[in-house]
Design a protein around this nucleic acid. Structure first.
Ligand code: ZN
Ligand code: ZN
Ligand code: ZN
Ligand code: ZN
Lengths: 155, 155
DNA sequence: TACGTTATGTTATACTATAACATAACGTAT
DNA sequence: ATACGTTATGTTATAGTATAACATAACGTA
């Protein structure tokens, strides 16, 4: 199920952003990395590593699991992709390294994922950490539920 | 590394709580379920499914992966155990079903995990969900960083 | 005791991810 | 242009996580 009405644009913009990000930071945006990122941006649904492998195997028979996982590692390292731990799946990020942490809304009906990165969440988590004398390094926040479209479809 | 100074008590209390919870709710707290819960409460570190399997295999040669995963499913279903998605590991819960969601602080140095379940987090997440017209069902919040003891040890 | 339900045993397999070592492509300095 | 160090990719093997499907056993009740 695809709710986004202008998704080709989402995808293209994401690739352009990645291209520029890599150029600026002296990183190699190789054909493989581009291909994987395009695949991940096929929709707003998270993508499984082995589905990526299947897809790229169509044109590149030398692809093996490490091919995919290394590429995902690269993309994650620079915030172009995030892993959704509750799904063992990967989702593109539209604003690489704009802020430290990304938070997600995950629809259990259509599988679409959107980011919900608010300063208020960062602030509260900092506060909770401080209260527990805990030094925060990285935070996973994945809110599962029903997106607007899927609620309406139920009605 | 074990920072808790009174942990045998933590473990015993957790088992007692589970015992009572099951009695009250007409659930069978079988020897297997008790054993697995005890193993999980060996420390405040999350435990891997296959480590549980190894442990129970010592005394019960018929144990196989489904033995463990089914038991974990049961314990999770009633809030006696939570899965930490970022670690593929399982941690005991001291207050089964006291509230809907549990949130965690995970020390990347000593691996100890503590819960940080605050109403203020629930409230903010509700607010974020509402803002996005999203109906929340279940939320994963795992804050990774350094616990107090481990920060001090670095100094 | 018979019977339905829940729990566990058993075998097989699916899914997710990394280790370790080899080759190729790239960037830069001579 | 060539040599060389670095980064990326190829390749083989294996480790780690989880579930499907069906069989038997234990439990609770009529
Ligand atoms: Zn889109
Ligand atoms: Zn949806
Ligand atoms: Zn303790
Ligand atoms: Zn610690």
């Amino acid at each position: 199920m695809q709710h986004c009405q202008h998704h080709q644009q989402c995808q293209q913009e994401a690739i352009t952003v990645a291209e520029k990000y890599c150029a600026t930071h002296n990183l190699r945006f190789t054909p493989l990395r581009r291909r994987v990122l395009e695949l991940i941006w096929t929709s707003h649904e998270p993508v499984k590593a082995y589905d990526i492998l299947d897809a790229i195997s169509d044109t590149d028979t030398s692809s093996k699991p490490p091919t995919v996982y290394r590429t995902l590692d690269f993309l994650q390292q620079y915030g172009l992709v995030h892993k959704l731990n509750s799904q063992n799946a990967y989702i593109g990020c539209a604003h690489p390294n704009k802020h430290q942490q990304c938070y997600f809304l995950i629809c259990t009906a259509c599988s679409e994922v959107s980011e919900c990165c608010y300063q208020s969440i960062d602030t509260l988590i900092q506060k909770v950490a401080k209260k527990n004398n805990f030094t925060q390094q990285h935070t996973v926040l994945e809110i599962q539920g029903l997106c607007e479209s899927c609620q309406n479809e139920k009605a």
